[in-house]
Design a protein around this nucleic acid. Structure first.
Lengths: 346, 346
DNA sequence: TGACGGAATTGGAACGTTCCAATTATGAAG
DNA sequence: CTTCATAATTGGAACGTTCCAATTCCGTCA
């Protein structure tokens, strides 16, 4: 059962040419005669040849692998991000090496090291919570192109692609204010992250802009998950002066908030306005459909991949920091009655 | 910026030993003297050496990579499966190569080929819809260990790990019957898949066992997604003789069914009983908490990985077909009032 | 006929590791 | 002071590819 490995030399022998010619065929070179190419390809098929990338990498030192490291694969935001990356990476003839750190710095160190050992030619990283510039230093010094997504890291000399969290949050809160809300909460997320910080500042700035007093009691952190949303809204409803609306840290939290509201017999969208952040794929089909700040995770993955490929091609250009624009998608969960039918037909 | 590559020879020179000794240190051999080992390790740190796995693979022909191929990463069932695999694979010193096929056979062919080229020493595959034994033949003939998960493929000579879909579905439907339901629907899923087939047969067999007539009108396929669940339940509610309960193809569909019910002002759990399949992580925290047949995706990933590692170690044993047991987890969505508090505290 | 030039092909040296067989150092036993 | 076993180290060949420089082939032109 265990076959002898078929090499380029076996192919050469079978096709009656030299190994160099076979190599040329493998690389699709135009230098080789059509008839010869056909003979070689036939031999490749007949013998069941499998290209050995390790050998090739060894010689040419530029693999066709790009790595992507995410901090929480069970969060569908990151799964979609990975799918977006995969789409463009694939069509550029690269293959994707995906690893999940589960927010653990130590694990992140390991997977990044492992990817370097495998010779990835670029890396897309959504850093684990608490990653600092020093953690990334050995990686960036090695000169391999890196693109940070979702979370930027101060002082790291690499390109980054994050979304405009501040203005997205402002837009959402402005919308709630326009609809007459005054007691607006900010629910969910770990307060020690840059993303939380930016979204929360946007929330505050919108309140200040409208002359509404900001209250720390209305900012309630939690795990950035559905379960976290449930506990955050429970806590919010314990307050003496309850909020009537909330901007949530992300969509997962927002779904949890809806769940928590229902558990208290409050109907999200009717009795309490909720807005999410990210626009994951379920946001549109949930009932009520979730009003959310659209970050378009797949699109973000695509852009990150394009940026990385550009850098790989250019052989490391200046780091660029792109902040992707973001837009409020108004659906039902914030109390708007609009567009029900149009969305349903889409 | 672009550094010269540091090799084992540079280390050897710096530490005043031969490259063979460095290699021994790298492999943690007990043959090398403590003092020498320390010197070598110091040199490795100082020079910023990065191990080159391509070169190692070339020589020893057994990589530390295992591949995992899933058909839909945006479905959190598969994301969790991958996380489970990662956990055990990692602690065995392997690294995981994850690819998403998006249910496309052609793409699956490509990623499997690419993984072989990279010399993976084993493969866990959740096959794309419509994969048949012939698609897998070249892979299994190559002698590399393969474990099929979630979906089995008739005639493929490989190990598989699937869940007991038939008895899970029966248990769920029996439960609905015990609660007095007679008009029970089976909602969602693509009818041309083996998993659909098994779950649907379980559904029918439970009805037959109870002497309830089975009606084809009550079996309504759809995409196995949240959106699919919405459309399936809409269709079900158009029937002259409406169902009062449903077993859903999977949890995603079940969530969609809940959404669709609410859109018609029906409360899942109170006005209509719904049961899902899989027990994804959100099932517990959703409101109402989803009654579902627990498949434990992470656990499944772990077992698949253990099975694969065993085969890799053994150098390809007989294929085994494991069907994992499955249990009904009763929560709120099927109308049970039980255990509300206990789950909430957990 | 000989020289020329482009197209096609080729041999051999790399790439960075591992592994084998061989060598040298280190003590202990005679 | 030899002899031996054991521990530690080592040189060189191999792994399967790519790439360079060199070579052969073949038709065309003077």
């Amino acid at each position: 059962m265990v076959k002898e490995r078929v090499t380029v030399i076996d192919i050469a022998r079978a096709a009656g040419v030299s190994k160099s010619t076979v190599s040329l065929v493998l690389q699709g070179s135009s230098l080789v005669n059509e008839a010869t190419r056909a003979k070689v390809n036939a031999a490749i098929r007949d013998l069941g040849y499998v290209y050995n990338r390790s050998a090739a990498n060894l010689r040419q030192a530029k693999s066709k692998i790009i790595g992507i490291v995410v901090n929480d694969l069970t969060n569908s935001f990151f799964a979609e991000l990975a799918v977006g990356v995969d789409a463009v990476v694939q069509s550029a003839g690269f293959v994707q090496f995906l690893a999940n750190t589960g927010e653990k710095i130590e694990r992140q160190r390991e997977v990044v090291a492992s990817m370097r050992e495998h010779g990835v030619s670029g890396l897309i990283v959504s850093p684990a919570r608490g990653t600092d510039a020093a953690d990334l230093a050995p990686l960036v010094e090695s000169g391999i192109p890196v693109v940070l997504v979702v979370r930027d890291i101060a002082g790291a000399e690499v390109s980054s692609l994050i979304s405009d969290n501040h203005s997205g949050a402002m837009a959402a809160v402005r919308h709630l204010i326009e609809r007459g809300h005054q007691r607006i909460a900010f629910l969910g997320g770990f307060p020690d992250t840059a993303v939380f910080e930016a979204r929360m500042r946007g929330y505050r700035d919108a309140l200040i802009e409208a002359g509404i007093p900001v209250s720390d009691a209305l900012v309630i952190g939690s795990a950035p998950s559905r379960a976290g949303g449930v506990t955050a809204v429970e806590q919010a409803m314990m307050l003496a002066d309850r909020p009537t609306a909330a901007l949530c840290f992300n969509d997962a939290v927002a779904f949890g908030v809806c769940d928590g509201l229902r558990a208290r017999r409050l109907e999200p969208g009717a009795d309490f306005a909720v807005i999410g952040f990210d626009d994951v794929i379920e946001a549109k089909t949930a009932v009520p459909a979730l009003t959310t700040v659209s970050v378009d995770p797949q699109g973000m993955g695509q852009r990150a991949a394009e940026l990385l490929l550009k850098q790989i091609k250019a052989g490391k250009a200046e780091p660029e920091a792109i902040v992707g624009s973001v837009r409020l998608v108004v659906r039902q969960s914030c109390g708007a009655q609009v567009e029900r039918k149009r969305e349903a037909l889409a």
